[in-house]
Amino acid sequence: MWRALWTVSALELRARLRDGTAIVIALIVPVTLATLFGLALGGDDPPLKATVGFVDLDGGEFPASVRREVMAAKELKGSVTLRDLPSREQAGRELESGAIGSAIVFPAGFSASVGAGKGGDVAVLKTPESPLAGVVASAIVDRISAVVDARTLAVRAVLRAGVPGDQVKELVERNGAAGPAIGLADDPLAGGKIDLSVYYGSGMAALFAFFVVGASFRGLLTERKLGTLDRIRAAPVAAWVPVAGKAAVGFALAVAGALLNWGASVLIFGSTWGDPAAVTVVLVAHVLAAAAITMLVTSRVRTDAQADGVIMVVSFVAAFFGGSLVPVYNLPGPLQTVALLTPNGWTSKALTELAGSGAGLAAVALPVGVLCAIALTAGGLAVLGFRKGLLL
């Protein structure tokens, strides 16, 4: 049985290489388009505009100084906007609606607590839908925490030395622990920048995965029309062998094409897609989902021409709404929700997270899980369709 599977796969690969479809659709066209888009629209500036909510329930000098420092930071100009909000609850609502990407919340009494050597905690509210805003807010609060810790230790040391309470503030400030000089010397966007070449490289890989695996499944319909499939089924092989053989070739070519797009993006533009192991898992999961969907289409149509048309429509709809042609952050709010109904949307979400935050495999467990669930669901329905139609 495995020998028959290997024979079908070898014949399919030989045919695809001979007529050039494998090289053109899997390798040349997606890399060329990704390169052209990257040259025309790519760049080093962050394509995401981050809006960070600023909730000052303290009203003291510390939050006001932090706000001034952030607004004056050259690293954030043109990319980050601060929006003053009256309460943590309002920040939560703004975050949920997508009006802001993250929020910094100073609690009431924060300045007094720090001044008394008791320290204080600044809250960060963020959402995975806006990784850049989360990176910025976390970087700011990390700097605040360092300043607070230094001042708290200084105040405690002065108090233990027996300095009268009314002289503590003056002594601490005179010895350089006044704060909050948060000076954003390091770029908080480092690791948060996402070159548009990454979007279009991954987008073309996601789009053409449908075409690559679709060409193999379309071959089943062509062979049925030519009578080749009947001759294969007349041999002592299982009915699933032709489907599995062609699926294996389509899957392998699609994965190779996706990896080549990744490599080309890195070599040509010097961009990074993030953790290599995590990127590989995401791309493989996407190809699995694309293969299952195209297999489902093939199981439901009657001719190869119908398969071509339906696969093209499905591919471009998923690509547009899923961020393969237009970055998801450029779509209106409702369409950004629609993006999560497509495998492309989850793939874009995962790769954005990896490229923007430098996270690892754990950060994309949900998108990978959803892609695998799509593959299992569509693949199961496709098997039922094949059993009722093509293979009977």
Score class of each variant (00 low, 15 high):
343 P>D: 10
307 A>V: 09
314 V>T: 08
340 L>G: 04
306 Q>N: 09
297 V>D: 02
318 A>V: 12
273 W>N: 13
323 G>H: 10
317 V>K: 05
343 P>W: 04
310 V>N: 00
317 V>M: 10
284 V>E: 07
274 G>S: 06
334 P>F: 13
293 I>S: 11
288 L>S: 13
291 A>P: 12
271 S>E: 13
304 D>Q: 07
321 F>G: 01
326 V>D: 02
288 L>Y: 03
277 A>D: 11
328 V>Q: 11
302 R>H: 10
305 A>I: 15
339 A>F: 03
326 V>N: 03
299 S>C: 10
279 V>I: 13
323 G>M: 12
295 M>W: 02
282 V>S: 13
274 G>Y: 09
327 P>F: 05
290 A>P: 02
278 A>G: 03
279 V>W: 07
289 A>C: 05
308 D>R: 11
276 P>R: 13
309 G>M: 04
313 V>C: 03
329 Y>P: 02
275 D>K: 10
318 A>K: 04
329 Y>C: 07
311 I>S: 02
277 A>N: 13
301 V>S: 01
288 L>T: 04
307 A>R: 02
292 A>F: 04
331 L>Q: 10
329 Y>L: 13
292 A>W: 05
300 R>K: 15
301 V>N: 02
304 D>T: 00
333 G>I: 14
300 R>H: 05
290 A>T: 05
283 L>W: 11
306 Q>M: 12
297 V>N: 03
307 A>P: 14
281 V>Q: 11
311 I>D: 00
294 T>D: 00
308 D>G: 12
293 I>N: 08
334 P>M: 10
332 P>E: 09
318 A>N: 11
303 T>K: 01
306 Q>H: 08
297 V>M: 06
286 H>Q: 12
338 V>C: 11
276 P>N: 09
335 L>N: 11
288 L>Q: 10
334 P>W: 12
311 I>L: 02
285 A>R: 11
290 A>R: 01
289 A>I: 06
282 V>Y: 11
276 P>M: 11
290 A>K: 00
314 V>G: 03
324 S>D: 06
337 T>E: 15
323 G>N: 09
310 V>R: 00
338 V>M: 10
318 A>F: 15
331 L>M: 14
335 L>S: 09
336 Q>R: 15
279 V>K: 09
275 D>P: 07
341 L>G: 12
276 P>S: 09
336 Q>H: 09
330 N>A: 13
299 S>V: 07
320 F>Y: 09
317 V>E: 04
338 V>K: 09
301 V>G: 01
332 P>T: 07
325 L>G: 07
297 V>F: 01
338 V>D: 14
299 S>G: 12
311 I>A: 03
289 A>W: 02
292 A>Y: 05
312 M>P: 12
305 A>R: 14
309 G>F: 01
313 V>T: 14
340 L>I: 05
278 A>D: 07
300 R>S: 01
323 G>D: 09
290 A>E: 04
274 G>W: 12
295 M>C: 11
295 M>L: 14
327 P>A: 05
286 H>K: 06
327 P>Q: 06
334 P>E: 08
271 S>Y: 13
297 V>A: 03
